[in-house]
Amino acid sequence: MTENVLVKDKEIVVPGEPLAQGMSFLPGPGTYRDGDRILAQRLGMVSVEGKVVKLIALSGRYSPKIKDKVIGKVIDVLMTGWRLDIASPYSAVMTLKDATSEFIPRGADLTQYYGLGDSVVCQIVNVTSQKLIDVSMKGPGLRKLRGGRFIEVSPLKVPRIIGKDGSMVGMIKNATKCEIIVGQNGIIWFDGAPEMEVIAVNAVKKICDEAHLGGLTQRIADFLKESTGVDVAQGGAQ
């Protein structure tokens, strides 16, 4: 019996497409075994690591993971907390205990703290099998967002926007002097001078459009230099 990988590395495959033949290969995330073959379980890009064949997703909604920092919007005020829309298939709940370290008396009007439509940066603390999601605002950098502007991008592009140790987003921050918060759920918040906000938004959109092409950092640096005049490539970004 021949054992081999049937597709090229980084090839884009469709669900049901055979990826590898033979029992010595292992099905990784996004793949499944059918007899002695490994097949694709979703639309994605193939990545072969030793004997493990896995797929990198190219599309799909945000799936919540513990410890992710996300941007949520209050969609309901409950008896004991708030319900947040976090751009995932399920909404999240923030309880009083997790919302603030302040003392909130029994029966207080919760809209004093967070009202409908308010946006917050929060962290996912628990996800159950039934996809009940708990978020918390206790932690560094977790706060209510006032003003600024929001955009929504594919959550799969978020690592590229942030870059290695935040290098990419740091570059945009330095060039535009905007405050930028990138949620793992693909919601991004910008606050700064209005014309700089627009440049920052365009830079992020450019990253999303060109995420799969090489030399992205240089192109974004050029774009920022051209539109703001700040040369971030010259050690501007830490």
Partner: peptide, 11 residues
């Protein structure tokens, strides 16, 4: 459905 990134065993 495949474009939506859902888990599918085949088209």
């Amino acid at each position: 459905l495949a474009d939506a990134g859902l888990e599918m065993k085949d088209l």
